[in-house]
């Protein structure tokens, strides 16, 4: 079959670790070919044994050896995923979606993660810090038990820039950090040049409203997908520049293009 294949996006990855890091939230590291991943914010589409459709999960981190994903158990498919063990293998469509445009980020980029929208923001922070860019991180969660990766962001900054990173956390019930939402954590950040965010649509909308179109944002959207590579048109989003596929044209869209 090799002669007709142009791009083998269906790769077998081997689970290295799969551990719980917060309420219903797991981190899985997988080993395998990552050469098709081109930008933070992309996702992989995982064939979980026993389930028909694949599960699209954003990439939190990757290197030449493998990828790390962080996912929440929300149904039977992710429940089966969290029970898989090191050594098990998964077929994954690799390097899907456009990813964040790191070159478009300005002098001080605000990075915002809401719940399990946080993982791709970690990969983006890593890429921007490696480029010597300044970032501030704001994370929003429901409650203290849902919080993850605050320290990982801080450690990332120490390793890559030798500096302390401003990481702010909000919880809806106030059990950790600032009580409220990510937009309640933005005081004193007047020199922010742009923002990148991944999380629930109400969070993206609140950020868009907070900045009132004055600075540009890159917003990562989520939608139930059929294929994940642009074939089925299941995950459409109506934007100011026309109908877009979340899986292929996104999942990252420019804030001024989104119809809230």
């Amino acid at each position: 079959m090799e002669e007709y294949i142009r791009k083998q996006i269906d790769q077998e990855l081997t689970i290295i670790s799969n551990e719980k890091i917060a309420n219903d939230v797991y981190r899985m590291s997988l080993n395998g070919d990552t050469s098709l991943i081109t930008a933070p914010g992309q996702f992989i589409n995982i064939k979980v044994p026993g389930f028909y459709l694949r599960r699209p999960i954003s990439i939190s981190d990757y290197d030449d050896e493998g990828v790390t994903i962080i996912y929440k158990v929300v149904g039977n498919g992710t429940d089966a995923l969290c029970r898989m063990r090191p050594g098990d293998t998964l077929m994954c469509l690799m390097g899907l979606g456009n990813g964040f445009d790191v070159n478009a980020c300005g002098d001080h980029t605000l990075l915002v993660g809401g719940g399990v929208g946080t993982p791709p923001i970690y990969g983006l922070a890593k890429a921007l810090l490696a480029l010597g860019k300044r970032v501030t991180v704001v994370l929003g969660f429901g409650s203290q038990g849902d919080v993850f990766y605050e320290d990982e962001f801080k450690d990332l900054s120490k390793i890559l820039s030798g500096k302390d990173l401003d990481v702010r956390v909000a919880t809806v019930d106030g059990s950790y950090g600032t009580k409220g939402f990510v937009t309640d954590c933005l005081k004193g950040l007047d020199d922010v040049t742009d923002y990148c965010a991944c999380g629930p649509i109400p969070m993206l909308k609140a950020l868009y409203g907070y900045y009132d179109g004055k600075i540009l944002g890159q917003l990562s959207f989520e939608e139930r997908m059929g294929c994940g590579f642009g074939a089925c048109v299941g995950c459409s989003l109506n934007t100011k520049s026309g109908f877009k596929k979340v899986c292929k044209d996104g999942p990252i869209f420019w804030s001024q293009d989104v119809i809230f």
Binding site: L53, R224, C232, S236
Partner: peptide, 25 residues
């Protein structure tokens, strides 16, 4: 005419199958 199709979500999983309500996008 061009069509956006039906509102999302418009994909659901089933045992050994799927449901779509793309709606002729």
């Amino acid at each position: 005419e061009p069509r956006f199709g039906n509102p999302t979500p418009r994909i659901a999983e089933c045992r050994d199958g799927m449901i779509n309500s793309v709606g002729l996008a």
